[in-house]
């Protein structure tokens, strides 16, 4: 079950090596994203796309807000 993370959790996990993933469409990612985040849009989150991620490290996903 995914774990909810706060802003402080994100900062800590990222410095510990977690991967930060924005799941919004590419245009929104290009406009603005968190430093160090990669873009894996939800609509394209296939088994193949997930190969961009390291399975041995934690992954943090985020979008715009709670919607």
């Amino acid at each position: 079950m995914p774990t909810d993370a706060t802003r402080a959790d994100v900062q800590r996990l990222f410095t510990e090596g977690a991967q930060l993933v924005e799941v919004l469409p590419p245009a929104e990612y290009e406009e603005e994203h968190l430093p160090g985040a990669i873009n894996l849009p939800l609509k394209e989150l296939s088994r193949q796309a997930a190969r961009r991620l390291d399975r041995t490290r934690p992954v943090i996903v985020y979008c715009y807000d709670t919607t």
Binding site: P2, L34, L45, A50, V61, T66
Partner: peptide
């Protein structure tokens, strides 16, 4: 959107998945 992505990653075999629910707006 991010909760669904988090669950999808778990289904793809990732075991340490976090959801920053408050997202870009909060940041």
């Amino acid at each position: 959107m991010s909760p669904r992505a988090a669950w999808r990653l778990e289904a793809l075999g990732f075991s340490h998945v976090y959801d920053y629910v408050a997202g870009k707006v909060d940041w």
